[in-house]
Amino acid sequence: MNIYLEEVTINEEHILLNLFEYYDYEFSPYLNFEVNQDGLFRKAPVHKYLSDEKYNAYFIKSEETLLGFVIVTMTNNELNKSAFEMEQFFVLKKYSGKGVGKQAAMIIFDRHRGDWKVTQVERNYPAQAFWRSVIKTYTSNSYSETYDEKRRSIQEFNNA
C-alpha cells in the first residue's frame, strides 16, 4: 500500500477529533481511559495541536482513504538544534500489520531531521515492539533505549 502524509488544517479539526475516539479506545487498556456519560472518551486537545506552532499534525492516507494520524512535537535540544518527539501516532486497526505504520514513521522521520525521542507507555508491548523494529531499521541499529521513572520505554536517535 502506497501511503503519504497530509498536514491537518484547522478546518479539519473535527476529523482529527473524531479519530481520537478510536485512538483513545485503543489506548484505554493501557491508560485506564473511561467513556463519559455520553459514551465518549476525553476531549483530546486537537485545537492545541493545530494552533500551536510547536506541533505538526498529519493525516496518514492512501489515495484518499484516511488510515490514521501522526502528531510531532518540535523543540530545541541543549545545543539549540532541532529536536522532535512523537507526540501521538495512530493507525486504524484495519490497517495494522500491513506496513502502514512503518511507512508513515519513515516518512515522518525523513521529513523532520534532528534529535528524535519516541516514548511508549508502560505495558504497551505491541507499541514497544513496533517502535524498536522501525527505529532499528531506520537507524541501522544506531539508537539508544532507556526507561523513565514511569517505566515508559524511550528510544532516541539522531537523523540530522
Rank of each mutant, 00 (worst) to 15 (best):
S133N: 10
N11K: 15
I3A: 06
E87G: 06
I60Y: 01
D38R: 13
M86N: 05
I60F: 00
S153V: 09
V134K: 06
S62D: 07
M106Q: 09
L5I: 14
V91N: 04
F157H: 08
G114W: 10
G68N: 03
G39F: 02
Y22H: 11
R152T: 09
F130Q: 12
F41M: 12
K117M: 07
N56M: 13
Y58Q: 03
N158A: 15
E64T: 11
E149I: 11
L40M: 13
M86A: 01
K117D: 06
K150N: 15
L19A: 12
T65D: 12
Q103T: 10
R111W: 05
K48T: 12
F90Y: 02
F90A: 07
A104I: 03
L79C: 11
Y49Q: 01
N18G: 10
A104R: 07
Y30Q: 04
D52F: 14
G68I: 07
S96H: 14
Y95I: 14
W116P: 01
V91W: 09
P126E: 08
L5W: 08
N159G: 09
F69K: 04
G68K: 06
M1I: 04
L19Q: 14
A129N: 14
F59V: 00
N56Q: 07
G99H: 05
H112S: 10
E21P: 06
Y125I: 14
K54M: 05
A83T: 05
I71Y: 09
W116I: 04
F84T: 05
A44Y: 02
A105N: 13
N2K: 14
A105S: 15
H47G: 01
H14T: 00
I10L: 13
Y30R: 04
L92I: 11
F69A: 10
F84R: 08
T119W: 10
Q103K: 11
Y125R: 06
M1F: 09
I10S: 06
M74I: 12
I71P: 00
L16A: 15
N80S: 15
E63H: 07
L31S: 12
